[in-house]
Amino acid sequence: MSDRPGFRPPDKPATQGLFAGLAGPAYSRRAALLSLGQEPRWHRFLVDRVPAGPGDRVLDVATGTGAVAERLVLERRCAVTGVDQSLEMLDAARARLADAGLAQRVTLVRAEAERLPFADASFDGLTVTYLLRYVDDPAATLRELARVMRPGAPFASLEFGVPPRALPRALWRLYTGAVLPAAGAVVGGAPWWRAGRFLHRSIPDLYRRHPLPALLELHRAAGLGELRVRRLSFGGAVVIWGRRAG
């Protein structure tokens, strides 16, 4: 499905600047607070969908401050490679993992999801968080993610969602349009206010360009099968999981 007329994907330098202002030791605490405590639950659900184990290598794309990478190591005892395009986020992840005593279990790499610096079939599992809103070509990005997974490897991806039912959707619009930016300004100042405004626009933009059934078709076309979907928090988050085709 093509982008709607007049749509411009988020400018990468602009989004990198946005994340640079958010990165820091308080990021995960503020993100959990502004998600009304839901984001840690989403991360648990995501990691539970990837049955990796000791000796496996898992790629965590858009690792941010390393929250999912940390959970993978603690719960799955696997080795993790975390990828992000933001140096500031990677610095925050490095500090977080060092504080948790996990620095030797996670390799952090600065790279773009569209051009991963890894050989074919390098990883035994994949996790992805909040990625597809930021890429120009989701289909090509999904193909690149599938390329670095071994056949049969499990994957799970987490995106923000728009609740499908009328009342939760109206409350979601009120929260993301007014409450979230204001609360962000209170807990984190101007960078978090800007992030709240950005989320209010960019989340529905993704689904206007690529409704959920179309996103699933893009996954299948990329070689990702056995797909399942779960909406969490009344649809405020969406997890897609499955396996790399053999």
Rank of each mutant, 00 (worst) to 15 (best):
R4T: 10
P5D: 04
A14E: 14
T15D: 03
T15K: 07
Q16T: 08
L22H: 04
A23L: 04
G24A: 06
P25R: 13
A26H: 00
Y27T: 00
A31K: 02
L33D: 00
G37T: 00
R41S: 05
W42H: 02
R44M: 01
A52E: 00
P54T: 12
D56E: 15
D60V: 12
T63G: 03
A69W: 03
E70T: 10
R71H: 04
V73N: 07
R76D: 11
C78T: 09
Q85T: 11
S86M: 07
L87A: 13
A92C: 06
A93R: 01
R94F: 09
R94I: 01
R94V: 03
L97Q: 12
A100Q: 11
L108R: 05
V109S: 06
A113Q: 07
E114I: 05
R115S: 15
R115Q: 12
A121P: 07
F123E: 11
G125F: 04
T127W: 11
T129E: 02
Y130K: 05
R133V: 07
V135H: 13
V135I: 07
D136G: 15
A139G: 07
L142Q: 01
L145T: 06
A146N: 09
V148S: 04
A153W: 05
L158N: 07
F160A: 15
V162L: 08
P163S: 13
P164H: 12
L171A: 14
R173E: 09
V179E: 04
G189I: 02
G189F: 01
W193T: 03
W193K: 14
G196E: 09
F198Y: 14
H200G: 14
R201H: 14
I203H: 12
P204S: 11
R209G: 10
H210N: 11
P211Q: 12
L224I: 13
R228E: 15
S233W: 15
I240W: 13
R244F: 04
